[in-house]
Design a protein around this nucleic acid. Structure first.
Lengths: 205, 205
DNA sequence: AGACACTTAGACCAGCGGTCGAACCGATGG
DNA sequence: CCATCGGTTCGACCGCTGGTCTAAGTGTCT
């Protein structure tokens, strides 16, 4: 989504800009972030920044997409060998979720910015960023849901998007709850286990 | 939370200001709202506004608290005669929740501003507003949870605040899901029923 | 009448996201 | 060798934001 010009910069310049942006967005969220500060930390001029990106939202979208890609790329996104019974399905989900949470815990800046993005569903100015980046995660969600339903692991008496919304809502609840705790790995594992069993109670047929 | 001076204004002036604020906050959320616009619509001068309120956040907090109070006052907050068996507990919860949602559907401005407030948990600038207004709803939540656990309607193997977080997360999921639908009353009733049964699955012992 | 606290008013501030025209740079063509 | 022309860089500038501050009004009590 950045102008193609941006991709023509040297990698060093690109990462320099994206890094400054990630810093700022992670520290202050979308609305609190100052594009001027990002620009100052980058060293590039304002005119150049607006030459590369359409504006603040465009830059934000790019940071989010980049982060999601990076997060899902490493084995998180590709489906494991399709489970054929409910137990295996939920176990696989749990391990994937744990994997995801571990990666998020390992890169706090990315975690902060993604959480900010997730919570900002209602901000109208960001609807395009929303749409843009949702394409990154949605296919995985719907497909996982579909296989879950196909093998009888997930109930079919609710609209699919409602099921997804419920799952995401519970996940977010656990996530924000976890943030307030000391994030040792054992606690994380327990929380994820608790979440998945609770989710299974709610979402199985 | 407004300065005491504000309460000394005539009721008409107070509602004039609060109404303009509600309008603006409902239309643009906290961050998108323009205090200058509120001031212009109010007719009062900037100096006076800052004489009554500490600033934007203070005004927002007051609007939220006022709205919550108003929402919970009319029979929503007071506990029904304490149910003594799980079925009654969940049924009572369902009816209260339905009542709440109906009232929210009936006053869209209040709904908009409360949703904005709920989703903005992460905004650090609003943490005080958060704290302030949470006092309004928290006691009811914890007490309801406690009675639910006492009569065996709610599981006790998870930390109480986690249970509350999960319930709120599911509620929010349903809520935002509902917003995208045509909000006829029958649909609302079905959604609430689905939510409460799902919540019960997840949260009962 | 004078003093005093309360209230109102709006000019002013730094910072925001975003725009814009001038300057710079390397390649191309006469 | 110079002119020209896209692509790129730059920072002054714009209208707006939330917030501050001082000066002027207003009412009341001595």
């Amino acid at each position: 989504m950045p102008r193609p010009r941006f991709r023509r910069l040297t990698d060093e310049q690109q990462t320099r800009i994206l890094d400054a942006a990630l810093d700022e967005f992670a520290a202050h969220g979308y609305r609190g972030a100052s594009l001027n500060r990002i620009i100052a930390n980058t060293g590039v001029s304002k005119g150049s920044m607006y030459y590369y990106f359409d504006g603040k939202e465009d830059l934000y979208t790019h940071v989010i997409r980049d982060g999601l890609e990076q997060l899902l790329a490493e084995g998180g996104g590709v489906a494991l060998p399709a489970p054929t019974d409910p137990d295996a399905f939920w176990a696989s989900l749990e391990s994937q979720y744990l994997h995801l949470m571990r990666r998020l815990a390992a890169s706090p800046r990315l975690g902060a910015v993604l959480r900010d993005w997730l919570s900002g569903t209602g901000i109208p100015a960001l609807s395009s960023a929303q749409h843009e980046a949702e394409q990154e995660a949605m296919p995985w969600l719907t497909q996982t849901l579909a296989t879950g339903q196909a093998i009888g692991a997930v109930r079919t008496d609710l609209p699919p998007d409602l099921i997804i919304a419920l799952a995401m809502g519970m996940g977010q609840a656990i996530d924000t709850w976890l943030i307030t705790r000391p994030p040792d790995d054992e606690g994380l594992e327990n929380a994820v286990r608790a979440l998945m069993s609770t989710m299974r109670r709610a979402l199985q047929p």
